[in-house]
Amino acid sequence: MASSSSSSLSRVVVKSSDNNLFVVNKKVASQSQLLKQCIDNMEEKGTNDVILIPLSNVTSNILTLVLEYCEKHADFADDDNNNQELKQWDHEFLKKFDYATLNSLTMAADYMVTKSLLNLCCQFIADSIKDLTVQQIRQIFDIKNDFTPQEEADIKNENAWAFR
């Protein structure tokens, strides 16, 4: 809880790994527990300066996406994750990314401790796994088939007993 009188600044500056600076509304930044903790720590120290938070793991194109998400979600209450409009927005938001971008976004959400975005990304990846065949999963996620031919035959045999 930041109660210091010097914490009048409503914005912070976030620096991406490729050294671009983003001015972010404090309420938006607080969607990330990492940023929120930084802000709280700095405010406890009673600084009057603009707070600069460097993120060594997040590039500016991914940071832009995370902040876009945070900005949207800052408009809704914490317990409003079931809001239909927000859900729709989340879905549209993630739909447009390729797998590499989705991966980077997931990692950024993990790193920046933006739990709702992390869960959203993981669920999105999970939902895409759901509709894939074994071959497609290996191809899309670049996973090596390390079964022996015998093991593979056994598994196929088992799975012939599909859920009925």
């Binding site: 990846i125 999970a126 939902d127 759901k130 074994v134 290996r138 196929k156 799975n159």
Partner: peptide, 25 residues
């Protein structure tokens, strides 16, 4: 994070996922 992703997949896909690799299985 990957483990969370796999855990969120609906159960009907588990046999398919179990056939992907030894690690997944």
């Amino acid at each position: 994070v990957a483990k969370l992703c796999l855990a969120l997949v609906p159960r009907t896909s588990f046999p398919t996922m179990g056939a992907v690799s030894n690690l997944w299985r």
